[in-house]
Structures are given as C-alpha cells and as structure tokens.
Design a protein around this nucleic acid. Sequence first.
RNA 1: GGUCGCAUAGCUCAGUUGGUUAGAGCGUUGCAUUCACAUUGCAAAGGCCCCUGGUUCGAGUCCAGGUGCGAUCACCA
Length: 755
Amino acid sequence: MSDLPKSYDHTKVESDIYKKWMDSGYFTPENLPNAKTREPYTIIMPPPNANAPLHVGHALGMTIEDILIRFERMRGKKTLWLPGTDHAGFETQVVFEKKLEKQGTSRFKMTREEFYKGAWDFVQENKHISEEGIKRLGASCDWTRNTFTLDPEVVKIVYQTFKQMHEDGLVYRSGRICNWCPKHQTGLADLETKYEERVEPFYYLKYGPFTIGTSRPETKYGDKYVVLHPDDKRYEKYKPGETFEAEWINGPVKATIIKDKAVDMEFGSGVMTITPAHDPVDFEIAQRHKLNYEQIIDKRGKLLDIAGEFAGQKILDARLKIVEKLGKIGLLEKTDEKYKHNVQLCYKCGNLIEPQIVPQWYIKMTEKLKDGRPSLRDIALKALNKKEVQIVTEKFEKIFRNWMENIRDWPISRQIWWGIPIPVKYCSDCQEVIIDIDDKTQSCPKCASSRLEKDPDTFDTWFSSGQWPYATLMANQAKKDRQDLETYFPTQVMETGWDILFFWVARMVMLSYYKTHKSPFEKVFLHGLVRDKDKQKMSKSKNNVVDPLGVIDLYGCDALRFALIFSTSAGNDIPLSEDKVKGMKHFGNKLWNISRFILSNSVIASPDAERGEAILPKEKIASDALAMTDADKDILAKLDALIKSSTVNLENFRLHEAAQEIYQFVWHEFADVYIEASKTQLKDEKLKANTLATCYLLLATCLKLLHPFMPFITEHIWSILRERKLVEDELLIVADWPKTLDLLEQLVSEASGYP
RNA sequence: GGUCGCAUAGCUCAGUUGGUUAGAGCGUUGCAUUCACAUUGCAAAGGCCCCUGGUUCGAGUCCAGGUGCGAUCACCA
C-alpha cells in the first residue's frame, strides 16, 4: 500500500516548495534551461502598496499573472516576472497621517524632513509584509529584480523624463483653478475626485435689477460680475460692459454685465454672478473676459476677511447665518426651492472639494509634440488603432477610447510630502525656472542670484508609476550589468484591475511612447473586482474583507487560486465565497487521491515497472494498441482534446475556461470513469502494464496542465513521482507543457491495420 | 447629460468565431459505503437562456425596439 497520507495537507508543503523553487533559481529567466535560445516573455507586476497588507484583489492579480508566467515558462519562454512595491504617495501619506493623528500630532506640527523620515521608516517596516504575501501566493517572480518605486535609479529616470518634457514644452506650471481638498491640503486630478448627488436648498437673491440663483450664498462675497446669456431675450436691454450699483451682502458694489454662453437660460433665473476663485466654470468665464477675481475661502475651507463678521468660519457653518443676514437686509427673494445636483468630493476622505487657485504643474495631453509626433493622447489612440496595444475584452477598449477622447491636461504636482519631490527651483529675483535633477544648482544660471526657492510639491504617484514598465527594466540595468531594456521591453502583458485603467494604464501608454517610442506592453488584461458572496464590495466598514493569507492558512494557496480563477471571465467582478474555496480544496484532495491510487498500484501490481516504461507510455501504448480497451482509447482521446483546448484557452486569456475543463476532466473523466475502469483492467495480466502506463501518462499530463493554476500540490506530487523515477524532469515548474499527441488517430489507424 | 455594460437552474456565475439533447460550483432529494478519496461515489429534481420583432436552413449567441438593473465619465450657478 501507499505510504502517502490519506489527505493532502497544504500546511506541510507550501513553504518548502516555494523555497525549492527559489533555490532552483528558475524565477530568474537567465537561469532557465537553454535560456539563451528562449524567447523572452515579460510581465511587470503592478507593485502593491508597500505599506498595506495584500488584499484579495492582489491575490487575484498575482494568480492571473503567475498562471500566465508559469504557462509560458513551461512552453519554453524566457519568462521574466518583475516584482516591486509602491511607495503609493497620497495613499500612504493618508494612512501615515491617520497614525500621527492617533498619536495626537499631525504633519502640520512637524518639519517636512521629520515627516518624510517617519513615513520612510513606516513604509520600510511594512514593505517586507507585502513581499512575504506575494511569496505565499506562490508568485514565481524574479526577486533578484525586485524594485521599489523610490529606488534612486527609478527616481533618476522619472526626473530625466520630467526634464525632457520640460525641454519639449510638454509640462508647464499654471496658476489656474484646481480641485482642492481642504482636509488633505493638496490639489487633486479630476480622477481623484468623485461625485455624489445631494439635494440642497436653492436660494434666489436680489442683485441690483436682477435675481440670481445659488446654492452657495457664502461664496457670493465680492461678486461684481453678473453673467447673462447673449441670446436671452429677457435681458436684451442690458449690454455687456455696462455697470450698475447694487446693494450686496458686504455693502454696495459696482457690478459689471458680462454675456457668456456658459449660462443656461433655462436654469434658475438665467442670471448668475460668478466666483472665479472657487468655481471652475466661473474661472473660465473670468479668463475669457479677463475679469478680476478675489479669494473668498482659504485653503482650509474657511471664509476670509472679505466675509466680514463671518471671517474664519467654515463655509458650511456660515451658510445659514449668511442666509439669515441676507434675509434681514432684504436681499433674499426665495428660499423654498430644493435643488438636486452633484457635488465633487475627495475620493479619499469624502470631504467637499473646494476649488482653489493654486499653481500646479500640468502635462499637455492634446498638443502636438515638438518632434512632429502627435499629442500624447493621439499617440495612445493610434497605438490602439494599430493594435500595438490590445486591451483584452473590447468593452474596455471602448471605455479607454472614450476617456482618451475627452482627456484634459494632467496635473502632476501634489501638495503632499510623501513622494518624489519635484526637481525644480525658482529664482526669487528673476523668476527663472530651473530644472535641477541632481539638486546641485546653487545659483540662478540667468541672473546669478543665489536666492533660489525649491518647489515645495511632489509628483502625482501616477507620474512615476506611469513610467514603471521601462523604469524598472532601466533601473535594473543600471544596478546590474544586464541588458534588460533591450531584452524584455516592450513587455508582453500588463495585468491589472480595471479600476486603474485611466489612472495607470493610460499614463503608461502615453509616457512609454513619449520616452521610448514603443508601447510598454502588447496586451492589457484587466481583471474585475473581487466581491463577497453577496456581491458586496469588500470594505472594512462592512467587515466582509477577505484576508487572502488567512484563507491560505485554512485551505491552501492552490485552493484560493483555483477558486479565484474558476469563475473569472476577463473584467467581470468575481464573487468569492468560502464554500467555493473549500470546494477547490476538495478538488486538490481528489488529485492527491488519484495519485495515491496510481502509486499504490504501481508498487503492487507492477513492481517491475521501469522508469522508461512509465515515462514513455505513448510508445508502449502504441506497440500494444490492439490490447487497448475502449476505456483506454476514450480517455486518451479526451486527454488529447483537453490539451488542445486548454492551451488555446490559456493563449487567449480564458483562464477560467481552461480551469473548468481541466477540473472537469480530472474529476469526472480521469477519476470517475477511467480510474474506476482501471480497477478491473489492473486485475487482467494482459492489460495491466498498458493500464498503468496510461495512468502515468494521464497523471503526469494533468499535473502539467494544472501546474499554473495549482502550483504547490502539483509540484509536490511531481516530486513524489520523481522520487519513484516515474517522471524525468526534476521540477515541474520547468517541465515541458504537454503537446497534443493526436493519439486517437494514431491508435485507430494502427489498431485497424492501416498506416 | 455622455459613454459602456448586464439580464441563462434555488443562489453565484460560465457559455470564444451563430451549429446536435444549454453547463459548472454551491444548495436540494434518494441510494451506496470494508474496495484511492465521506474532502467520496451513483442517480434525480430543477431552465418560455427578460419581452417583442427581424436576419438565417439554424439564434442563449447577430440586428432593432422595449423593460429592469448596474458601472463609469461629466464645469450647469
């Protein structure tokens, strides 16, 4: 009898197997057998946040990437999967600030250096946790190339890109209005804000001869322009540029009439006053008509001195009091109207965005490049048209196009401290802008003044991670004497969640074409969101967050991986339940017991089974073709079909279909049908050898097909087969992917006597 | 308001280019159990594939319209 335990225990083998793989060196492509003749196949890992433990979304991504990498490695590619971790600027700063808050302090009570040092140590402490998590997920990535987004080599590349863009006139600093989060004290890109529907009172105020509507009376201090639609018949008699005296909140003002098509005649009274310093639409109107404007609200969201007795109050606190005052002085005409509109919020803290005029660096998205190439936006669209970048599943390509077509300039500066500082100095005397990527410039090259002021801002994280595919390869090239960029770029696949299609994928495409003239990757595979069994988003507040490592402890990494892949079609959200993982653990056990059965029979029924006989079943089977039973022929034909179809499915990213058909075959064909038939066949001396050989072939092939999905148990069983000299390759991770044998045709022709 | 998507078994979902009796996991019901595995096996129940119309020899799959649901983007005070 077999000496193997009755059930498979993942806890005893997973870490040993990962170590075995590490020791083999096969995660590093140059160490693979016949590395020189292999064709490169590269995936750059989306670097998880160094500061947070992995969540189940990471587990999904890592699993998909690992499946692709293991599949291609077995198919003979020179596979590089480059791991990394992300300093995750804004995200981490928010987490770190919360920690400070708990300690009763805040970044505004520290120097910038103290803060940066604190955040750095915080991240370094946690960084190994994510790396450990990646390993426990079975990721066969090349740790010798592990890269951190703040590695000096990476930062240098980011700086060089910025400098080049500045020389090309692609980046500029502008004092236009931006999204401002009063809590986090930073500007945000449109993408970093969200909208929420609110129903709020809508007030009608008397403004000279007009009635204006507003939901934000507190911003109306200082309003001295009234804007009408040029085609509005009601106000035909008022000419643009005319002025009039109006009694207003803070006393009489001299108001000027402006006509602009931005006004909606149907909305409210069809008349509005503008607050250019705190509203994007108003700002644009002011720009068009070259109007003056004044700051009413400070960066913390409090009213300034212009608000008189309300100065220093938070706007929401002041609103009702101001309405009351307006009523008292007879300016309030109507208050009972409700108004449903979308308010813009910080995506991180959910606080109201208060637009502010703060200088920011922007990248031009729609302007032609100096070297004659189209704009960054158009280059990316062209790449899609020419299929140099393909997004898996067409729907994402459509979404991508739609977003690209409406793109606006990208603000890349943030007023946060944790991140890559913007390498710019300003001359206090002549205002010269100096790009200083080595931080060595001491005096202004233009006027020789030594009064230089450093830009206080940091880059948007996505500006640096948008360069990740080439930056990682270049950084490794700089660290070690390797030709990584030449060898592994462009990469083959970018696998990530669809939620960062715009944040990340779009920027990678644009920046890579800009810098390298090449696409960063051939294909983009987007996975969906992992949800709980009730399709709810996982969140701490709902207490339904699945900790992947906890699941691995309970059911094993293979079970988690298989459960995640099993019903995952590209880009659709995935409900994950404990039952599903449990079911997949059962499947692993099934495979284990198939192996036990075969091994126990190979000892008793065929003590003389030689290695050669076992590993070359095809020849053995062929020579004995006439002795084959229908069961033998049937299962081999099905195996053959499985090899073909699962290979094609994997090639086309239909991982779930491959997983399902392999599952189906192993359990319901191999085990339920063939193993049952073999029990009789093994008792027949004439059929015994052939039956065993068929079992070996089936088992070895299934282990190979399953290995990308369930790397640990398959490698473990393989090692047992190997100990008994039943398989040739030492490690399954580098075994050859099964080739179709066209067995059935061969068997039929031989059995029937025709060549 | 723009864009995109979804609707298939009790639940969660697969179903690539249109092609026989539409599948899986979990759940339900009945039977089996010294024989690899109770983390099991065998069997069963359960589907106008949202509705209407069209294209086709043939539609869950393609087209049009409808209904319901959702995602995402967006400067209407």
